[in-house]
Design a protein around this nucleic acid. Structure first.
Length: 897
RNA sequence: GGGCGAUUAGCUCAGUUGGUUAGAGCGCUUCCUUGACAUGGAAGAGGUCACAGAUUCGAGUUCUGUAUCGCCCACCA
């Protein structure tokens, strides 16, 4: 076996082999309960960041575990077309050539986007493969694929015909840079330090009188059609029916009364701009005022802005303030903090803008989705997200689904120029549905990307066609995602699931934390604080990345990352490699041969040593812990259990014990120990495989557990997940709690002995003698059998085990549950300092003993506490008393000298 | 403005239904090139569990309030 563990080449090798043998693919007919996860489709423009890495590692753990458990498990991968983001990328490239999309025209532009996708669209998919993601790549989907596009059209037509999709003029979030409407979720509110401008509007017919309005966006005054006051506001009673002169433009506007206006804010008078503010729009409707739109789609001012026509909105704001100041119409300007929407794709400040858009009525869709979560048919993990979901769903607003871009699913609505008919239909009709005229045209807009993503759990399985996959795998099982897309995606998938499949899309939603840098900021490319998973993989390996990430991520908690965290996984990998190397060396150089591929696994006929029993019991615990914790989405606990078991149980104790056995002459013991090592190690590799797939697969073969050759059937990825040995089995093997406790206590006495050595500064290279005085003959016998390994682990020259031992000189001593241990050091020990050492320890014991005694003296505790708690305290008191007594005895012997 | 999360060792964090002596990794101290592994081993030091109350025989854990930090949601100009 190679001394050096070359992780990266191992990882590349195995991924290729797994793919070559099609091991991630599962047909829906080959038996086993279904288990299905769909990937949260990353943007086709995306590059892998730590958030993706965490997300996909978790899913990979789940899918690998279920696969090993014999489930018919599939993980459907894919990407979404990311309408706005992708269009932006391609437009940027065009700009480099001095062209715009209009220069190309719609058809040529879309062709160009497809070409871009051919070339770059696989980036993130390939990166997922580096991570080890065992997706069923044969099922890879793209939201613009034929099948998924068909699903989108089908859904649109159905909702349209049902009256759940409508078109209308409303104020929407408009991104002036991307030149399109956005949904509410796509507008991210960012707190900004803005200004509140107090502007004076002259009252018509009275040159001395002004009213003062407050606004954060002075440029919108150009679109004002009224000013409003609260009808109950006494201050402005006399303004009723008055006319106001709009500054700059000189237009006469009216004063209206509306309950919306709160007398406390600003001046109690509001300018009304229906085309540029949602509240004003509503007021405009109530008071029958025609909106005046003063802005173009790109954020520049239009004709209605008069002298400001052509200016950018922010430039216009500056200029209009200069002009107003000159005219003496600015009362004051205050600092004002407020949240401004920003485009989630390009971060430009969103402009509320009146425009004609398509909307989905969400209320009816939300009802069954709310019910399902309330009834627990869909569960959020951690549960707190349930509330977040329900609150949003219960206050859901209509979804603006039309986008004024070209890359995406074009809205399947057609209009007849002849008769004016409007209808929705799949495919490309040639004639008007109503009058048969050929003079028809399709809506220019495309759909929100999420309008295809929300169908993902069933569209990827082939819907609207009915097929076996869909029947078998729907509803899917787990959805693993980050909290950021609960509204965008999770909630909408649930609604679509009910509307189109009549059932939940998945049963559990596991929301993992956000990956942040070590100062707590969300990792993002624009902040420049992201750790690139690929460079971590190059530096540490994918297994190291996976293990480390999982180890430090508590269920649903945010993760704070820095480069050094990945050493955990790397070091663990190295440790495993070397443990394996120790075992192969016994066979390569030591001339030993194990009994079977993976060692024996039935110990009924084997005479086990206490240490054998101990490790087998701990292995059973580890199997149970790993399985249980993954079932509960407690991945960090699963990783931790494995780390603790393999490193601190197997390597620290069992391997050290084995060294002693292998050094001895008992051939049967050697054989048994080697077999048990292989049994334990191979089982551990299985347990670790979901988290560290590569090193486990490599060791599986290197260690010969796969049998001859590297046949597909023998890969670890196809091997069955281990079951923990039950109590009955353990009993049959003679593995009892007593004997396991004995081994723990034996370890304790070794530690006490080592502490003596360390306390007295006896170098490890110096061989010393130890004397052990067990409490009983029975313990003495057990210890005598184990004296070889005890001697080795203490690095002792000699050990004497004698229950009747009476030390005749001053020597360092300590006690454990099994008895006392002495380290004779000729002439080095001063009675007084040794006394002091023992007294200190006794004092500490007595402190504990005092606490326990008090507790047991408290009748409230004894009467009210659970029986186990009381028993436990009693046992502990016993133990402390015992230990104190032993310590005191040591002290006594010392005093006699 | 509403909601949520966090506050435990020098650092980053675990601690699931209240009940042993509050744990891990990193860092730190001392020692060790012992034939699996220095990406390692052995032994240590280090914590009034943010603060104040309440419930309880018993609180890191439950409740209330306070403080600090962070996140999400929100049409008051």
């Amino acid at each position: 076996m190679e001394k050096h563990y070359d992780a990266r080449s191992i990882e590349k090798k195995w991924y290729e082999l797994w793919q070559k043998h099609n091991l991630f693919h599962s047909e829906c007919t080959d038996g086993g309960e279904p288990y299905c996860i769909v990937i949260p489709p990353p943007n086709v423009t995306g590059i892998l960041h730590m958030g993706h890495a965490l997300n996909n590692v978790i899913q990979d753990i789940l899918i690998r575990l279920r696969r090993m458990q014999g489930r018919n498990a599939i993980w459907i991968p894919g990407t979404d077309h990311a309408g706005i983001a992708t269009q932006n990328v391609v437009e940027r490239a065009l700009k480099g050539e001095g062209k715009s999309r209009e220069d190309l025209g719609r058809a040529a532009f879309i062709e160009r986007v497809w070409a871009w996708r051919e070339e770059y669209g696989n980036t993130i998919i390939n990166q997922l493969k580096c991570l080890g993601a065992s997706c069923d790549w044969q099922r890879e989907r793209f939201t613009m694929d034929k099948g998924l596009s068909d699903a989108v059209a089908e859904v649109f037509v159905r909702l349209y015909d049902k009256g759940l999709i409508h078109r209308g003029n409303y104020i929407v979030n408009w991104c002036p840079r991307c030149h399109t409407a956005l949904s509410d979720e796509e507008s991210e509110h960012v707190e900004e330090n803005g200004k509140l401008y107090y502007l004076k509007y002259p009252v018509a017919g009275d040159d001395k009188r002004f009213i003062v309005v407050a606004t954060t966006r002075p440029e919108t005054l150009l679109g004002d059609v009224a000013v409003a006051v609260n009808p109950r506001d006494e201050r402005f009673k006399d303004l009723k029916g008055a006319k106001i002169i709009l500054p700059v433009l000189g237009r006469e506007i009216v004063v209206i009364e509306d309950d919306f206006v709160s007398p406390e804010f600003g001046t109690g008078i509001v300018k009304v701009t229906p085309a540029h503010d949602p509240n004003d729009f509503a007021m405009g409707l109530r008071h029958n005022l025609a909106p005046i739109n003063v802005m173009n789609g790109d954020g520049t001012m239009n004709e209605a802005a008069g002298p400001y026509k052509g200016l950018d909105r922010f430039e216009c704001r500056k200029r209009i303030m200069v002009d107003l100041k000159e005219a003496g119409l600015v009362e004051k300007i205050e600092d004002h903090k407020h949240a401004v929407g920003h485009c989630y794709r390009c971060n430009t400040a969103v402009e509320p803008r009146l425009s004609r858009q398509w909307f989905v009525r969400m209320k009816p869709l939300a009802e069954p989705a709310i019910k399902a979560v309330k009834e627990g048919r869909i569960q959020f993990i951690p549960a707190r997200w349930t509330k977040v979901y329900l609150e949003w769903m219960e206050n859901i607003r209509d979804w603006c689904i039309s986008r004024q871009i070209w890359w995406g699913h074009r809205i399947p609505v057609f209009y007849c120029k002849t008769c004016g008919a409007e209808w929705s239909e799949k495919g490309t009709p040639e004639k008007c549905k109503k009058c048969g005229s050929a003079s028809i045209y399709q809506d220019e807009d495309v759909l929100d990307t999420w309008f295809s993503s929300w169908l993902w759990p069933f569209s990827t399985l082939g819907w609207p066609e009915k097929n076996d996959d869909l029947k078998f795998y729907y509803p899917t099982n787990d959805l693993v995602t980050a909290s950021e897309i609960i509204f965008f995606w999770v909630a909408r998938m649930i609604m679509a699931g009910f509307e189109f499949m009549g059932d939940v899309p998945f049963r559990k939603v596991y929301i993992h934390g956000t990956v942040r840098d070590d100062s707590g900021l969300k990792m993002s490319k624009s902040l420049g604080n992201s750790i690139d998973p690929l460079s971590i993989i190059e530096e540490f390996s994918a297994d190291a990345l996976r293990f480390s990430l999982i180890m430090i991520t508590a269920t649903g908690q945010d993760v704070y990352l820095s480069n050094d965290k990945f050493e955990i996984g790397r070091n663990f990998g190295t440790k495993l490699w070397n443990a394996a190397r120790f075992m192969t060396m016994q066979e390569e150089n030591g001339g030993m041969r194990r009994s079977a591929n993976r060692g024996v696994s039935d110990f009924s006929a084997v005479q086990l040593s206490p240490d054998d029993k101990h490790i087998i019991m701990r292995l059973a615990d580890a199997i149970a812990a790993v399985t249980d914790n993954i079932d509960k989405y407690r991945f960090n606990d699963a990783a931790h259990a494995l780390y603790e078991f393999m490193w601190h149980q197997f390597c620290d104790w069992y391997v050290e014990y084995a060294k002693d056995v292998f050094g001895g002459g008992d051939e049967a013991a050697k054989q048994r120990t080697l077999d048990i090592m292989h049994h334990v190690f191979s089982t551990s590799l299985l347990l670790l495989h979901p988290i560290m797939p590569f090193i486990t697969e490599e060791l599986w073969h290197v260690m010969g557990y796969a049998g001859a050759g590297d046949g597909v059937e023998n890969m670890i990825i196809k091997t069955r997940w281990p079951e923990p040995a039950g109590t009955a089995v353990l009993e049959r093997w003679g593995i009892t709690k007593d004997i396991v406790d004995y081994v723990d206590s034996k370890h304790e006495i070794i530690r006490v002995g080592r502490t003596l050595r360390s306390d007295y500064g006896v170098l490890p290279s110096k061989k010393v003698d130890y004397l052990i005085k067990p409490d009983s003959e029975k313990t003495a016998e057990l210890l005598k059998v184990d004296s070889g390994m005890i001697k080795a682990l203490l690095r002792a020259e000699n050990i004497t085990i004698d229950p009747k031992l009476v030390p005749e000189k001053v020597m360092p001593s300590g006690v454990g549950k099994l008895g006392a241990i002495y380290m004779p050091l000729a002439g080095l020990i001063d009675v007084e300092s040794e006394k002091k050492r023992l007294l200190d320890q006794i004092a500490r014991l007595k402190e504990d003993l005092g606490r326990v005694t008090n507790k047991l003296a408290n009748m409230d505790f004894v009467n009210k506490a659970k029986k186990e708690a009381v028993d436990h305290q009693r046992a502990r008191k016993e133990e402390l008393l015992e230990k104190t007594k032993k310590m005191e005895k040591l002290l006594e012997t010392l005093s006699c000298m």
